[in-house]
């Protein structure tokens, strides 16, 4: 009897096809679990009320690191109830408990990368939206990075804008 070559075997075809499907599904469609935020912060409402990015994310323009707002920042407006939202109430609950709001940082670069907001925003003239996306449309807090924080994305942008790609400028 003539033996069929193994790549024609049905089990092999099945394995190959579903392996490829699984690779796609697990790798790209269901991304790694993302952090949960302690309260459902609404960027759209705040921005519509005339607030700018660095009002809460201090340092995002002229410091190396942008920051997440501390409780004090929130309480500047939310000492008293502004809305009837139960989410807003959580701020005062944190304040009453004497705890900082444990924001989860969604966007981060790897630790071996030196990234400076000052270099990109204040000196390079980028806008926040270029990397962080259109936050003014978001009613839920982000749970995973909006823009791509891959080296490819960095290099592409650097090439477009004719910024040099010396490794040492970013890798540390």
């Amino acid at each position: 009897m003539e033996l069929a070559p193994p790549w024609k075997a049905p089990w092999f075809l099945g394995f190959g096809f579903f392996f490829a499907v699984g690779w796609f599904l697990f790798g790209w469609v269901w991304p790694a679990p993302s952090p949960r935020q302690p309260l459902r912060y609404n960027h759209a409402v705040h921005i519509a009320n005339g607030m700018g990015c660095v009002d809460c994310h201090a340092g995002g323009r002229d410091q190396e690191r942008a920051t997440l707002p501390g409780l004090d920042t929130c309480l500047m407006c939310h000492q008293e109830a502004v809305t009837e939202s139960s989410e807003e109430e959580k701020i005062r609950a944190f304040a009453a408990a004497g705890r900082e709001i444990p924001w989860a940082q969604a966007t981060r670069v790897p630790r071996h990368v030196y990234f400076s907001h000052r270099r990109h925003v204040a000196l390079g003239g980028l806008e926040c939206v270029d990397c962080h996306g259109a936050m003014e449309t978001r009613t839920e807090p982000p749970r995973y990075p909006v823009g791509p924080t891959t080296m490819d994305a960095c290099l592409d942008c650097h090439e477009q804008r004719k910024v040099d790609n010396d490794c040492n400028r970013c890798h540390r």
Partner: peptide
Amino acid sequence: TGITPEGVVRQTFAR
């Protein structure tokens, strides 16, 4: 590892 245009012998640790 390589040498930058400014003459620094660099080492990209992650690589």
